[in-house]
């Protein structure tokens, strides 16, 4: 059951229309945008960490980022809110 009140036919037509407007160039641009956003977010998160340093940015964010993603995420969310 659903109470979304969505008109799926209309929704799908709109979906297809939007997707159709994306050619290879636009998709390439979206991948670049996505990667840039991820990089910016990682650096921003690192900067909010108490222990952040330039070396951290290189070693921690680049090499060990995945290992401590939860710690970075929590600090980032809270410190960003507090700022």
């Amino acid at each position: 059951m659903s109470n979304s009140k969505l008109d799926l036919k209309k929704l799908e037509a709109r979906f297809d229309e939007i997707l159709e407007s994306f050619d290879k160039e636009k998709i390439d641009a979206w991948f670049r945008f996505n990667e840039e956003q991820l990089r910016n977010e990682a650096i921003l998160k690192g900067k909010y960490l108490k222990t952040f340093s330039i070396d951290m940015e290189k070693s921690h964010l680049v090499n060990d980022y995945k290992a401590s993603v939860e710690e970075i995420e929590e600090e980032y969310e809270w410190l960003k809110m507090a700022s």
């Binding site: 059951m1 659903s2 109470n3 979304s4 009140k5 969505l6 799926l8």
Partner: peptide, 13 residues
């Protein structure tokens, strides 16, 4: 719920 796609319980969605 309006405008929220229920892909868990609605077969069509």
């Amino acid at each position: 719920e309006e405008g929220i796609l229920n892909a868990t319980f609605s077969e069509e969605e």
